[in-house]
């Protein structure tokens, strides 16, 4: 295996998200950023492939504002060899169509590769569209929801894809993209040496011009979709709360379920 490219996204840490009780809107200020949780499994898998084959280069790529560099440094500290930040004002307001196009341009710029990996979906947008989108721009197969890799080598892989009621065992030949699940592996903790190396690493910033991206396919104008409005859903409030564990308490719950036609 010569090269694995891992795509990650920097997202707000959902665990730190707070809802303003008066306006019922999300408070985004001061919320720390993290690597999208599913992408941690993508990074880990890239590093495991390198450890297995030895001669593999793991390149980690993200698109975002300059501060997304923090996410890339974290990926480097875990063992990725090289990081690239795709950042340009022209990329702002890209939807999944434009984003997957920009990421596919980066792949072409990087050069040859054996496999592309990314997480199942990002925890902010939850679309799961960018991974398959990249594969579509590159005209390669994509396999989503990977929970297990039975075998992987240059030009061949045998993997398991999770379905709602089971899983598929899939063989793929040639280059491909996979989106991965938590079940695949357990991400490592960065080593001290990794952290030091990540601190010193130079991370190039690639612009639209450098990527030779078509202006008609990036940013706001290149995005087919438009957000008409964003709003907060009605707040979910706690309802009835009773203390106890006797028959009467359970009867109360039973009656609640029947009254609301839940049984």
């Amino acid at each position: 295996m010569n090269r694995v490219i891992v795509f990650i996204k920097q997202v707000p840490d959902t665990a730190e998200l707070k809802i303003d009780p008066t306006t019922n809107t999300m408070i985004r200020e001061g919320v720390p950023s993290i690597i999208n949780p599913f992408d941690m499994y993508a990074i880990e898998e890239g590093i495991r492939i390198k450890e297995k084959w030895g001669d593999t280069e793991v390149v980690v790529v993200t698109m975002g504002p300059p501060q997304a560099e923090t996410a890339l440094r974290e990926a480097l500290s875990l063992g990725c060899d090289r990081a690239i930040l795709l950042s340009d004002k022209k990329f702002a307001a890209s939807d999944t169509y434009a984003t997957s196009y920009i990421l596919s341009c980066a792949v072409k710029k990087i050069g040859d590769y054996d496999v592309l990996i990314t997480g199942k979906q990002a925890s902010d947008g939850d679309t799961a569209q960018v991974g398959p989108g990249i594969a579509s721009w590159l005209n390669i197969p994509s396999i989503t929801y990977i929970r297990k890799i039975d075998e992987i080598r240059a030009g061949y892989a045998k993997v398991e894809r999770m379905r709602n009621d089971g899983f598929d065992i899939i063989e793929v030949t040639g280059k491909f993209l996979m989106t991965v699940l938590k079940e695949l592996n357990e991400p490592r903790i960065p080593s001290f040496r990794g952290k030091m190396a990540a601190k010193k690493a130079e991370i190039p910033i690639w612009s639209a011009e450098y990527l030779e991206a078509d202006d008609g396919k990036i940013g706001f104008l290149g995005s087919p979709t438009r957000v008409v409005r964003a709003f907060s859903p009605p707040p979910k409030k706690g309802g009835i709360k009773v203390e106890g564990e006797d028959e009467e308490t359970v009867n109360g719950l039973y009656n609640f379920l029947s009254e609301n036609k839940m049984l």
Partner: peptide, 21 residues
């Protein structure tokens, strides 16, 4: 799983806008 695997690829091929979920 079928829709979420297939449709993003079709949207790119057709140059279409796609909204998930």
């Amino acid at each position: 799983p079928q829709g979420r695997s297939i449709i993003p690829k079709l949207a790119i091929k057709l140059g279409a806008g796609l909204t998930a979920d």
